[in-house]
Write a protein that binds this DNA or RNA. Structure first.
Lengths: 79, 79, 79, 79
DNA sequence: ACGTTTGCGCTTTAGC
DNA sequence: GCTAAAGCGCAAACGT
């Protein structure tokens, strides 16, 4: 009988993933809609995407720098 | 002054996108966590991903078929 | 006979790729060796990798910014 | 003053890695170009990649086998 | 040496 | 239809 239990557990995991994938898809669609709305108000989506990408890169670089400084602090025995 | 209005509008669009991107990232993390939890209970994540992919293909194929049938129905003047 | 010609061409392309893949593998090994050598002289490779990564991120962000500014210039009809 | 020496050494290691990373990137680009050229002559790049992957697996398997045979030879006191 | 975690490359998808 | 970017899977690298 334990195979059935395992199969049931697996089914539940699969369904949780599928549910989350759907939610993710919905958010992607929302993002697309925002670009469309912005375009309808005269903004160029290519430029907007470039801005979003740039801001993300800068944020990531800052986070990386913070992590590196934290590593230094730890290595030097500082707080 | 209209440049400022435009700039403000642009800023709002950008922030909406960034907010949605964060949500999307959060969901991706949730999916990752489900796979980790499943793995901790003895399920192989590679296999699970293959199952999810396969089921999606089957669903897409079914949807495709439904759309085709709908086309036929319409063409034939049926409900 | 044209299949043979095509097969021969394909073989040559494949071999060019394989040759390049080998070179790439060699360079990856060289990089690994640099980290090992640095470690033998007391440098922490994890920190070094973080530095390399950070510098790359900053460079990429700068390049992205340049491209964005270039887009603006073009849009505004400037040089 | 030794920190400066260490810092200089570190800088040199970092730059060696960065130089090698650039070379590696260049080779990756070359590989991409070969696939593009092949495609322009009618070859499907996805299939080509599959062939390259397969041949690599076969080569690895052969090398593995050779190593195993060598182990046997040594164990048996043969040349 | 093994298992986990992170980075890298390929594949696929979405935009133009 | 093609190019570019995101997401996924794999493989190397770190810590145990």
């Amino acid at each position: 009988m334990s195979e059935n239990v395992a199969a049931e557990q697996l089914r539940l995991f699969i369904e949780r993933v599928e549910r989350l994938e759907e939610e993710k898809k919905g958010i992607s669609d929302d993002i697309r809609d925002v670009y469309i709305e912005a375009k309808s108000q005269g903004f160029d989506s290519k430029t907007m995407r470039a801005i979003v990408r740039l801001r993300k890169m800068e944020k990531d670089a800052r986070d990386e720098m913070d992590a590196l400084l934290e590593t230094y602090r730890t290595a030097l025995g500082l707080v």
